[in-house]
């Protein structure tokens, strides 16, 4: 089930939270989102369902993570940049960041 929007702490712990770099906010609106998902692909898919324009800023044409975007899940860098199969827990904190290269 898709859950979107701000939530109380208890509710938030039931689904992952996704936050975005301020660099991205220069280009489009992307508030913190609490969305369901057991993998990064599922979680981002739910983010993009609410904010379709955001997809092309984070993923390339073939659905891979953009070369100069990096994502942390609970402080660990995402390993599978192609299929985004990294596991996500209900209480996970996901940060979408820009790499220091590529600017």
């Amino acid at each position: 089930m898709l859950v979107v929007g701000s939530a109380s702490l208890n509710e938030r712990n039931s689904v992952p939270r996704v936050a975005f770099t301020p660099h991205l906010k220069r280009h489009l609106d992307c508030p913190i989102q609490d969305v369901s998902g057991r993998t990064l692909a599922e979680t981002l898919g739910n983010v993009f369902a609410e904010n379709p324009q955001l997809r092309s800023y984070i993923l390339d044409d073939q659905g891979s993570l953009r070369q100069h975007v990096v994502i942390f899940i609970d402080d660990q860098v995402v390993q599978d940049r192609g299929k985004l199969s990294d596991a996500v827990l209900p209480a996970s904190e996901i940060y979408v960041m820009q790499a220091l290269s590529g600017g």
Binding site: H23, I58, V69
Partner: peptide
């Protein structure tokens, strides 16, 4: 051609 976020 945004360095991080692709072509717009």
């Amino acid at each position: 051609a945004l360095g991080h976020f692709g072509v717009k």
